[in-house]
Nucleic acid binder design. Structure first.
Lengths: 187, 187
DNA sequence: GTCTATACACTGATAGAC
DNA sequence: GTCTATCAGTGTATAGAC
């Protein structure tokens, strides 16, 4: 694998594991088996490398979600499949966890790919709910945008509760509770 | 105010603002207007000080939530009041945000007060839902524990979405979406 | 493209004086 | 209790050789 590619992937891993503040150029170089000069030849510094890594992770997250969204069945089927997909719950969300980092949120270049990813997710969920409304699966009065935000929030919040408890249980409970609530508004 | 007290409060602020990894003893001393020697006289180091600060923040969070929970009205009234309480959404949750920090999650002494706080919150929400079930406000089949986890998750996830978007909007949408879903299962 | 050398501030403490 | 001195290590680069 090329050096630049190894640097990006190592940064993705370290950002997931340690966050932005907790990730040093030195640690990236070590993980990527690249020297100082090599890293600074390919990237201007930690921020640019992080931007590349976050963009990559965002794209991967979107692709993984789209796999469930584009699978067949009713809107509820597709949403449920997305919610119940296998996840490494205790590691948290690679993208969502970065929102805790003040240096990420303060830098528009680093926040942008995170913003885009969640914006895409909420929009995509809203589209699926809107389709469900058209087919009579949900009442016409259901607000697709708000419901989509609720679904995205349950996942992100589920990760938080799970990491706090050092157990996947609260994540699973939150998801199952949401599925029950969604069933309650179904026609 | 006493020095130890000032140190704890400054640490609470800095942990909220910068996280654990991003908060240095020096920054704490500066904020608390205390010298090095003073800080290390009162606390063994950064970890012990953080523990005191997290415990304090957890207790404050519980007290603030209990204010809404113990107010009058139906279960839905009390939950809605809690969900719609004024919050500094873009700052995120003082406790929840710390779950992103690997050094916090790795140290049982630091994770414990976070775990306790969310465990209390989920239990308390479940009690209120159970009361609602007894009074016929919710169907007997509704799972109080799961629904409680969903509610707690929507708040924590709402913070994540809001910080990603640099806007309170997705938080508010997620909360409103949840309230609609809860109304859907109400009798 | 990659390497080594250098730099300077900051981190998280410890030691001992007052 | 608080202060100042000191310290080994890390963070985040830049400079210039190869």
């Amino acid at each position: 694998m090329e050096t630049a590619e190894r640097l990006i992937r190592s940064t993705q891993d370290l950002l997931w594991e340690r966050g932005y503040v907790g990730t040093s150029p030195k640690a990236i170089q070590l993980a990527a088996e690249a020297g100082q000069g090599s890293m600074y030849h390919h990237f201007s510094g930690k921020a640019e490398l992080a931007r590349a890594a976050i963009e990559r992770s965002g794209a991967e997250l979107r692709a993984a979600a789209e796999e469930q969204f584009s699978s067949g069945g009713t809107a509820t089927d597709r949403i449920t499949r997305y919610l119940e997909r296998d996840r490494e719950v205790l590691r948290g969300c690679r993208i969502g966890r970065l929102t805790s980092d003040p240096d990420v949120i303060a830098d528009p270049a680093l926040r942008a790919p995170i913003d885009e990813t969640f914006r895409w997710l909420r929009t995509r969920l809203a589209e699926i709910i809107a389709e469900g409304k058209k087919k009579g699966e949900y009442p016409a009065a259901l607000d697709a945008t708000k419901t989509a935000a609720t679904i995205a929030a349950v996942l992100q919040g589920g990760y938080v509760l799970a990491r706090a408890a050092d157990s996947e249980e609260p994540f699973e409970q939150a998801v199952e509770g949401l599925i029950t609530l969604l069933a309650g508004v179904s026609a």
